[in-house]
Design a protein around this nucleic acid. Sequence first.
DNA 1: TTTCTGATTTGCATCTAATGCTAATTGACA
DNA 2: TGTCAATTAGCATTAGATGCAAATCAGAAA
Lengths: 154, 154
Amino acid sequence: MRSPTELAQVFRDKQLKLKPQRQLLFSRLHQNKSHPTAESLYEIASKQMPGISLRTIYQTLGELAEMGELQLVDVGIGATRFDPNTGDHHHFVCESCRAMHDVDILTSPKMSLRRGGGFAVNEVGVVFCGRCNRCNHKQQVRSPESQAKDKASN
Amino acid sequence: MRSPTELAQVFRDKQLKLKPQRQLLFSRLHQNKSHPTAESLYEIASKQMPGISLRTIYQTLGELAEMGELQLVDVGIGATRFDPNTGDHHHFVCESCRAMHDVDILTSPKMSLRRGGGFAVNEVGVVFCGRCNRCNHKQQVRSPESQAKDKASN
DNA sequence: TTTCTGATTTGCATCTAATGCTAATTGACA
DNA sequence: TGTCAATTAGCATTAGATGCAAATCAGAAA
């Protein structure tokens, strides 16, 4: 995703308005490596701009995605994640805390270009599931409360 | 997934009952390569057993998945698919008709075992997106009605 | 600066997919 | 045949997301 300043220019060029809600989201998303959901962005944005609507978050995220500024990542568990890193890469998801991390591409180009069974492949998504570093170090039996705590601290 | 007969035995051994609803689902799932959703199984099952509950479909699918007889495939668009092929393989999804097809594994074992960035990887899911054979041959502009028709015929 | 207008925001209703809960039913064994 | 726990089915509820319409407002034009 481009910088907030660059995005502002893009929006101006397209005759789109630069409301403070958008600018806030631009800045919260730029170089954000946490793969936030709409809800988590809503919480973050609400701190700076109480009263901002969740609907607006969805709206803006959708627009940015459509403009190719954001990558949508949906691994099937929970909500869609939004990734400002639009380069060629894949994702690791921790089964325990659900944190998501970028994984630099390691599939061979052949894999992406492969045609098999008559399919024309446009995209290849690879999702690695497992336990992240942090969760690996907490191997004890965990209470649901402490798991909830984990989740909240992401 | 094992055959309906084998499954019946497994269920008996576990003191689980063999209601006709279950037996129907066993037979509809066995060697089913269509990657059905709960809803689509519901439609199919309803034809043979009008009045069967969608809740029962979800229930039974969940049990079979927990027993390792079914693989859950969730690519983030629409509902979870259920795959009786529990072997090591991946999936192709057609962006146009949403049909899903098995793709025999082509990731190297190294990829599955890989550890990177401190992650302990348990599973690697690869999803290929594109256009299937059939949809590739219908490149004309399509009306929403004809697309709906496609969807219904899966 | 003021006016105007269409883009944005927001709140609410709605939707899909799925699960929780409970009363009623029933398979299978004694 | 009777018993009882497993199962079913219906209904409520949830999470995540989108559709819609009224109110608001950024920014161009006057």
